[in-house]
């Protein structure tokens, strides 16, 4: 019997496009009157021919600057918005049809939006959701207990939502969204506005949920910590177009053709001695920090170790946060 892992696309996106018509108006009374008489509309292409596949159980990070098309893509994947063109399949369903079986299998959590009833304790909303998803009272109670334990929620469940902290509210939102045990999770900035501890708790929970139920997760976040700690694969989108789909480490290599090398010397040396190996970033007689091209790294390190009395040597990649941050700031797409 073959033990080879069979990959199964749970999410399949092919040439997905979405365009909106948006009214354009210049400031001022003349422009307002002109707009009143002749409304100017222009077409915004929010998502342009995006294609990708996601296997069952994968956790994929979907990153890009504000307005890149991440949320619009998520909305199309969960069936909230109808695509202008292209094909989407999630768990074998066409999301835009939003049939019952499809809705039973997915969930969308939006960090900036809530589904819990604001003036009631979360438990009230949970029991409504449980009934809507066809869970018995007993099933609902067991699942609430299980998820509450995973999320470290207890007394918060009987306090009105409006009285909860942002972190507690987000955890309760997650519980409400996962009560029906969906196999596909679309998470749109689930840690938005949370403090470091709450972010870490949510990440831990998502990892546990993924492991326990083999759920597929597509996650957007502006916190690179979410991406680096949860996702081995990332999709990078900018101005509606997907320009990278692959492992996070490969992205690092692609974004930075250099590796950062830190050398501590036993005795002082001249700065000029190191100029031949790469770009010097820091030099202090006994301490050298430099960027060396990846393809020259082995040769350069061998030569350095043979030529200088090295006390300590450290090779690392520049932080991914920095790389992607620079990429989005510069607007340069590889």
């Amino acid at each position: 019997m073959s033990t080879e892992k069979v990959s199964m696309n749970i999410i399949s996106v092919d040439e997905l496009c979405k365009s909106y018509r948006v009214s354009v108006k210049k400031p001022g009374i003349a422009a307002t009157l002109s707009n009143f008489l002749n409304r100017q509309l222009h077409v915004v292409e929010a998502v342009k021919r995006v294609s990708f596949n996601i296997d069952q159980g994968e956790i994929v990070g979907f990153i890009g600057p504000n307005g890149a098309g991440k949320t619009t893509t998520l909305k199309m994947l969960c069936g909230l918005v109808h695509p202008t063109s292209g094909e989407v399949s999630v768990s074998g369903h066409r999301p835009k049809e939003r049939n019952r079986d499809f809705l039973q299998e997915i969930t969308l959590v939006m960090g900036q939006k809530q589904q819990l009833i604001w003036d009631l304790p979360p438990l009230d909303s949970f029991f409504v959701n449980a009934a809507v998803y066809g869970l018995t009272k007993c099933e609902a109670k067991n699942r609430i207990d299980e998820l509450a334990a995973m999320l470290d929620l207890d007394k918060e469940l009987t306090r009105p939502v409006r009285k909860l902290s942002l972190g507690q509210r987000m955890k309760a939102e997650l519980l409400a969204a996962l009560l029906h045990r969906p196999s596909v999770l679309f998470l749109d900035e689930p840690t938005l506005g949370l403090d470091v501890n709450a972010q870490s708790r949510v990440r831990k929970f998502l990892r546990q949920y993924n492991k326990r139920y083999g759920a597929t997760i597509l996650l957007t976040s502006h916190y690179m910590g979410d991406i680096t700690s949860l996702c081995s694969r990332v999709l990078l989108i900018n101005e509606g177009s997907l320009f990278y789909d692959g492992p996070l480490e490969e992205l690092t290599g692609k974004l930075s053709p250099y590796r950062s090398v830190r050398i501590e010397l036993k005795e002082p040396h001249q700065k000029s001695s190191f100029m031949q190996y790469g770009i010097l970033e820091e030099f202090d007689e006994r301490l050298v920090r430099m960027l060396i091209p990846r393809d020259e790294l082995t040769a350069a390190i061998t030569s350095i170790l043979n030529s200088f009395p090295v006390k300590d040597l450290e090779i690392c990649d520049p932080p991914i946060e920095e790389l992607i941050g620079n990429l989005f700031q510069s607007g340069i797409v590889p």
């Binding site: 909305k75 939003r98 019952r100 809705l103 997915i106 969308l108 939006k113 959701n129 998803y133």
Partner: peptide, 12 residues
């Protein structure tokens, strides 16, 4: 305000 979205994603 987009509050309709979570309702649309439930089988009701």
């Amino acid at each position: 305000e987009g509050k309709l979205s979570p309702f649309l994603l439930q089988p009701l």
